[in-house]
């Protein structure tokens, strides 16, 4: 087996979709197996422990002691660690629950559910709920990041083949707009339209039509299936580097600025609307300090304003 790239994969707290995403390389998986030797992999192999490896793919965020221990073991065993999928990179969708306290969550699930009748809250044998989600690089050093929910097979294939041939993967920093075929045009649209209203024009940019679309502020790790099939981007691969790294840039201000130029909708109206829908728009990345730590990011306030109505 010498000459082949040795690969370990591991999943932490995750829906499992990233590993299905790897299996969804379909026929190409045979090409990959020509230059990659799969060692530990929770879906396909029965390799125990953490054998020494060249590449380690970790999917999912850190939620508990098991996740922490597994991440550390992978770090020790693997030369290069890839944080794979939006959960590993930014905490992912479950991060949206950071907006709520543990008590609120338990109260909703066990006391306020319409079909639940009980006086018992889980207390013995189970651990106290931890902070909902921690991105991988807060626990171990990460070498490469591949976000996406899950990343498209084309990116997975390129990353594995590139690493097998000793070249860096094409770390493209294009946005979801790159593969979108809609045309950005100036319009007289004067009001925001909720995503569910009307049937969007299939040829025209959503922003031009007054729909909030996160395509222009989201990293392309998907090849744009949403705008291609008539659905505005919801940002599942996480924000672009520009937004992550520049303190004065943000999802809502960037989208508002574009919509202001394209339509007759005032930027302030877009910012207010996106703050009111903050849990939706920021869900995938609010667990990362690069978003959640911005001083202007007042998620709990925005949510309590909405829920108080």
């Amino acid at each position: 087996m010498s000459g082949k790239l040795r690969l370990n994969t591991e999943w932490l707290s995750v829906c499992g979709g990233c590993h299905v995403g790897i299996v969804d390389l379909h026929e190409k998986i045979l090409d990959v197996l020509g230059s990659v030797e799969v060692q530990r992999c929770p879906v396909l192999t029965d390799v125990k422990g953490y054998p020494e490896a060249d590449i380690g793919i970790i999917t999912g965020a850190i939620r508990n002691e098991h996740d922490r221990a597994a991440a550390l073991a992978m770090r020790r065993a693997c030369k290069t660690i890839i944080a794979f999928g939006t959960c590993a990179v930014h905490g992912g969708l479950p991060g949206a629950n950071l907006a709520h306290s543990r008590e609120e969550i338990l109260d909703t699930v066990f006391r306020r559910s319409r079909s639940t009748e009980t006086d018992v809250l889980p207390a013995s044998e189970v651990s106290t709920l931890e902070k909902m989600v921690t991105p991988l690089d807060e626990v171990i050093p990460v070498d490469l990041y591949l976000s996406g929910c899950p990343p498209h097979a084309a990116f997975i294939f390129d990353a594995l083949v590139a690493l097998a041939h000793g070249r860096p993967p094409k770390a493209r920093d294009e946005t979801v707009c790159a593969a979108c075929r809609r045309s950005m045009v100036k319009t007289d649209v004067a009001e925001l339209r909720p995503n569910h209203s009307g049937i969007p024009d299939p040829g025209r940019c959503f922003l031009s039509q007054g729909y909030v679309c996160l395509g222009s502020v989201t990293l392309d790790r998907c090849l744009s299936p949403c705008p291609k099939q008539g659905v505005p981007c919801t940002g599942c691969a996480g924000p672009t580097m520009q937004i992550l790294t520049e303190p004065n840039r943000d999802l809502r201000t960037e989208v508002a600025e574009r919509m202001r130029r394209l339509t007759k909708i005032p930027a302030g109206a877009v910012v207010s609307a996106m703050e009111a829908s903050a849990k939706t728009h920021y869900a995938y990345a609010m667990a990362t300090r690069m978003i959640g730590g911005k001083p202007t990011f007042l998620i709990k306030k925005w949510i309590s304003d909405v829920e108080a109505v």
């Binding site: 707290s13 995750v14 829906c15 499992g16 979709g17 990233c18 590993h19 299905v20 995403g21 939620r63 508990n64 992912g92 969708l93 479950p94 949206a96 629950n97 907006a99 709520h100 609120e104 969550i105 338990l106 909703t108 699930v109 559910s113 889980p122 044998e125 189970v126 651990s127 709920l129 909902m132 929910c149 899950p150 909720p194 995503n195 569910h196 919801t234 599942c236 829908s277 849990k279 939706t280 869900a283 949510i303 909405v306 829920e307």
Partner: peptide, 30 residues
């Protein structure tokens, strides 16, 4: 013994209804 609670029922409250199909898909990748 299941030692994890993701609390989707709480997370979904306050979100736009039209997002439910996309958000709840993330409960399970299979």
């Amino acid at each position: 013994i299941v030692n994890e609670l993701r609390g989707f029922e709480r997370m979904l409250v306050g979100m736009e209804a039209d997002r439910m199909p996309l958000v709840t898909a993330r409960i399970c990748g299979v």
